[in-house]
Design a protein around this nucleic acid. Structure first.
Lengths: 341, 341
DNA sequence: TTGTAGGCGTTATCAT
DNA sequence: ATGATAACGCCTACAA
């Protein structure tokens, strides 16, 4: 039962010697291959346990082609959507016996390049990347030559040779606007998100498309910014000071909406303001918020699972085609949009 | 400029041949060691670029002792505190040129064992673990024999040979209760958290200690449960139905508090209830909440940085002592505790 | 300053 | 059913 922690390093040769077989045989039981006696198998396994043997994947990767691991490089793991994505990915990967090695770029493209390199040095079988802000097309193109399948998630960079999985934000945007149009009109604001990123571009496009079908509604305010609550708070404060905040607001995500509501409360402490707000993501807090947020829900989990499927497939069949998948979001109608009042 | 993506695999020998030097020389420029001509160095580096050489860390780890990577095994990356922790860790590690490979147990001890094994197979230089619920002392003891430094974070399991970094939750708990005692008394509720985990145990201990100094305040309701908003909502609903929810409430974390507030609003839609709430963590939404949450803030970032320091230190000096560090949290007084009203 | 010659732990191909 | 043996890509003495 007790592990000999003093042993410098137990190798397959040690195990083989201890079990009285050759290294080759020990290797076979390790991989559950070949035709070996149950008895031999058990004896070798017993020796492994007794000696505290640890497989050396680095050495194995010298000969074998797979490491059963894929590298996951995300821009910001503290983003709820991203976290959910990694969970879906890990669940789907676990079923295939491959592990995800996750690392954060913190939105630095330098760090991103370093991490890609680092993952490749570790012989990962595939790569999943949520590109950092500022990732150029040239950087993305280089990814298509790394020798293992790569899938880009969330932030689209259409490059041949790279697969992509993301949310259909155009549909999401028009869905948000269409819903608002059923019970409101006039000027609309869109708040938050970086203009250089697909999610914002697509959501705005969808919103504009929907608004274009109405004669009495238009996008009057459109301000880009970081997708977080404090930016939402600041921006809404400023707009409220100006008197230029429209009563119908679409926020890039729930976080921004939280900030907007804080600003509204500061401005009119006496009671809820007559605004209509729709946001995106449906994070856990959205349903608990006052008022509960109407939001466009997209499943990070589903994106993660899809990424796993694609990677696993392309690892099996490296010459298969690259794929582009869009997950369709759905609107969750609660109270913030004002239609239930 | 163009990478030969067709090349099966470029090795150091290829690079050496291309640059007209020996493998040993090429290896030296790889590691920036030895005394080589600037010219030789440049020539070799040029060949590396031209050939698209990728360092094979697995092969290197056969001879070298370090892989410049540490394994990070967390119970749930979508927890804000955990995410923040990994960011602090990665920042501190990056300065030392080591990368963190993160994986999620999803609170499964089976998966935890698998991931520990997997990280060790990949020859990580150290291990950081936030134990999954249900991790036994025996499992933890086995960690002290893995041959690389291990630090446990957040959830304490005191085992010789393992370092620990966490939040001083006893102080946090007493801090919360003491603050409430300055302007309230009577029955108090503590809601959320798993009884088998240190954070809850310590917070309750701190709260009881502080309450014991007052003659007219006591912990009347103490209900364990999952540390999330939906549990907070359900539980508060039930207590409200019974009429057994005390007006003074301490929540395991902000999420639980969010759920409690939702239940309060459902119960009295006409306006804010006269409750006093203090929670833990100070996640981004806490300041934006209505009312803004008074909460015990602990820096996950700081915990992460400390973990990195300890690991790097012990990797340098494997025989150094194991350390236990507690980060002291601070109270952020906002409106939910009712003292500003 | 550079080259030569093992050896690290594993897998794969052949024999036996 | 099992065993020899030769790679795999890199590092490290040591020799030149």
């Amino acid at each position: 039962m007790s592990r000999p922690s003093n042993a410098a390093h137990v190798t397959l040769a040690d195990v083989a010697a201890h079990a009285g077989v050759s290294r080759a045989t020990a290797s076979l039981v390790l991989r559950d291959t070949g035709s070996l006696t149950e008895d031999t198998r058990n004896r070798v396994r017993a020796s492994m346990n007794e000696l505290g043997y640890v497989y050396h994947r680095g050495a194995a990767s010298l000969r074998a082609s797979r490491t059963q691991s894929i590298g996951v490089i995300v821009s910001d793991i503290s983003n709820g959507f991203t976290a959910e994505l990694t969970v879906g990915l890990e669940e789907a990967l676990a079923a295939a016996g491959v592990v995800a090695l996750i690392a954060n770029t913190l939105e630095s493209t330098d760090r991103q390049e370093l991490l890609v390199r680092s993952m490749l040095e570790r012989q990962v079988d595939g790569l999943l990347i949520i590109p950092a802000i500022g990732t150029t097309r040239a950087m993305a193109e280089r990814l298509s030559t790394v020798g293992v399948p790569v899938v880009i998630a969330s932030r689209d960079i259409a490059v041949p040779g790279l697969s992509y999985v993301g949310i259909d934000n155009v549909t999401g945007g028009s869905c948000a606007a269409e819903h608002l149009l059923t019970h409101t009109n006039g000027p609309v604001a869109f708040l938050g998100g970086f203009t250089e990123l697909g999610p914002r571009q697509d959501r705005v496009a969808g919103i504009k498309r929907a608004l274009a079908t109405a004669s009495d509604a238009w996008l009057e305010v459109d301000i880009p910014g970081p997708p977080n609550g404090s930016w939402g708070l600041e921006t809404a404060r400023r707009l409220l000071d100006d008197g230029s905040l429209p009563p119908t607001i679409i926020c890039l995500n729930d976080q921004v909406a939280f900030g907007v509501y804080r600003a509204l409360r500061e401005a009119r402490p006496e009671g809820p303001s007559p605004v209509r707000v729709v946001s995106f993501d449906d994070v856990a807090e959205a349903a608990l918020w006052e008022p509960p947020l109407t939001t466009i829900a997209a499943s990070g989990h589903e994106v993660g699972v899809r990424c796993a499927d694609i990677l696993l497939g392309r690892i099996e069949a490296p010459d298969g085609p690259t794929v582009r998948t869009l997950i369709t979001p759905t609107i969750v109608v609660r109270e913030s949009c004002g239609c239930l009042v």
